[in-house]
Design a protein around this nucleic acid. Sequence first.
DNA 1: ATATCTGCAAAGACTTTGCATGAGA
DNA 2: TCTCATGCAAAGTCTTTGCAGATAT
Lengths: 151, 151
Amino acid sequence: MMGPHWWYNRFRGWGYRLTIPRQAILEILSKSDKHLSAEEIYLEVHKEYPSIGLATIYRTLELLVQMGIVNKFDFGDGRARYELAEDSKGPKHHHHLICNVCGRVIDYRDFSEEEKNFFESLERNLSQRYNFEIKNHQVMFYGICDKCKGK
Amino acid sequence: MMGPHWWYNRFRGWGYRLTIPRQAILEILSKSDKHLSAEEIYLEVHKEYPSIGLATIYRTLELLVQMGIVNKFDFGDGRARYELAEDSKGPKHHHHLICNVCGRVIDYRDFSEEEKNFFESLERNLSQRYNFEIKNHQVMFYGICDKCKGK
DNA sequence: ATATCTGCAAAGACTTTGCATGAGA
DNA sequence: TCTCATGCAAAGTCTTTGCAGATAT
């Protein structure tokens, strides 16, 4: 379940084509472990394929989000951020602490067993209750970070 | 801890002034139980105070978010949405199921005791671990809703 | 009195769209 | 071949900013 083969089948399944721009974007996303903006992805892709335009980045990302391959985030800085999706147990999965004052985003992924189990069982429960196929989740805690506490 | 008096003290505490536009915006937010966009708030406020401009709505909302009085959401529809904050136990508190395909947002607030307790203890834990004062949280589950499952 | 806040209009920033060309299956 | 996808540029939307006048304490 990794590599271009997987992407290919996934696209076929949705009736889409696996093109160079789409591969390039997935390549960049899988190399990075940060939340990338559309423009950051564009700049990376541009290094290797200068002819690929920003509009294609946006169109592709929208597609990938729909397909559940990519997650879209908003941290309130005015631009959307993207990250390769993976099930909630994946090593890169994390939750966020966001400071309402300075906007800083802190990731944490040192989940306790309890936290992991809780979300797994909650997802199963909700899937049934709402007949909703859950692919992923986002958890954000808002408040005041240590640096901003001293007003 | 309700009514204008409370707002007044809260503003004083931050060194801000409680003005007519700010009161009007808080008034609208406390009457509504939906996620309002800046423009929706503007239109409501405009009914009573036609002279208040949209820029003031944006500036005030940003302030209220910083103060932790208001929560800002993004559901991927291109505009931010706002809601009066309250602690996680409040009756209006809810989590979200968001469809990656059609963008529909389903709120749920029929939390189990286990779910409530879990988030409370997780917040206490994180506050300590990261020296971060948690005011609120957002939980979103992404996937495919019942209507979109039939492709 | 005076630092803060607001209205208006203009600018800014991110994202989307139209259309002719190019490319996958 | 025949859709589907892309590039470019232009347009669209939401949001922010500058500044002079108004306001809260």
